[in-house]
Write a protein that binds this DNA or RNA. Sequence first.
DNA 1: GCAAGGAAGTGAACGGTGTTCACAAAACAA
DNA 2: TTGTTTTGTGAACACCGTTCACTTCCTTGC
Lengths: 201, 201
Amino acid sequence: MIDKTPSERRYEKTRQGILDAARSLLQEGGVEAVSMRSLAEKVDYSPAALYKYFSNKEEIIEALRQEAWELMANFEPDMPPGLSMAEMFVLSGQNYVKFATRYPEYYLLVMSTTETGPESMEEFKQMPSFINLLQFTEAAIGSGQFILPEGYTPTHFALLAWFVVHGISLLKLSMMSKCADEFETASFEVLNMIQEIIGRD
Amino acid sequence: MIDKTPSERRYEKTRQGILDAARSLLQEGGVEAVSMRSLAEKVDYSPAALYKYFSNKEEIIEALRQEAWELMANFEPDMPPGLSMAEMFVLSGQNYVKFATRYPEYYLLVMSTTETGPESMEEFKQMPSFINLLQFTEAAIGSGQFILPEGYTPTHFALLAWFVVHGISLLKLSMMSKCADEFETASFEVLNMIQEIIGRD
DNA sequence: GCAAGGAAGTGAACGGTGTTCACAAAACAA
DNA sequence: TTGTTTTGTGAACACCGTTCACTTCCTTGC
């Protein structure tokens, strides 16, 4: 353990302070409210000073994106005990949409990356959040509660679920934002329908 | 028919010229490449002159969005004769994704609106593109080729299809852009799976 | 044909953005 | 205390959307 000098601690502290201010600006007014000048104003520095702590604005945004990603991964629903796989599936899907609704700026930040994504599907399948989803579908299919047509794997169903919840979330925040509540109830009915389709034999 | 004066024709012509230049800039470098200054440069006007033809930049973008919307609605796949409903479903879904792939800026433009969306689900269901999708699912379900669980309507399945293709398209253009091809084949397998699930009895 | 009036077009500016750089001030090291 | 490195700043650069007084051109009425 290398102990840090006071100056290193100070450096780290103001760096965190900048990120805190950026997070606050992001949540208040979306990503376009995060400007170097407003950020500097908020932390009582000159705009130029920020460049001693971050090499550019994108590095600040990227740090927030990382935070958002972690928050999203740890945003798990209250699972009442004794739920069937099908019920858990619906609840998880709803929870995903609820995250996007509660933290729209975080969600859009995570989704707005063309740079951080996986280089291959193989790499994608290694990502913790997808592994989680995959393990769930494997369990549901393995136990016979979910039934897939011949030739399809749990990965296919996990992808389906992923597509649907992303489609719902993004549409809710963009095109359907003017009737978001009504849209949400309709989309939750669709989640239920999927569960019934996949569960029937 | 009110015949237009020469000056009106000229006005309309330069207005179109501006839109042409804007479209070209959009397709070359995405929406952030469309700036009033680069636009003015391209049509050999001063930036201020553009405001005699459009009240602001958003009005230009909105015109392009309208174009994109129409192009998207008319982007229909070559349907070989004798296809089953299930095959047509898959082909239509693939076609949707292909549009997003071929015209990513157009697709993102259409999707990036929080202002133009429907005010209610009822209004949404009246939109031509959704009516198309709905009529197809009604036909497929009415003929017994698609089977839905009790209590669910063709609208539910149309929504499901809509969610999936949007989820695929947006993910392909954002997070999965680094492995877009691989991702596309996987997502097309998912479309096929849906068709098989919904078609089985 | 000519003057009046409106339409078309412009240069300069305002306030905003991200970023750089020479410089000053403060903290640290010898 | 001196010298050096870190920390911070003001001013500038090159962009952005937009406005406005001003000129230039075309059209309309006589």
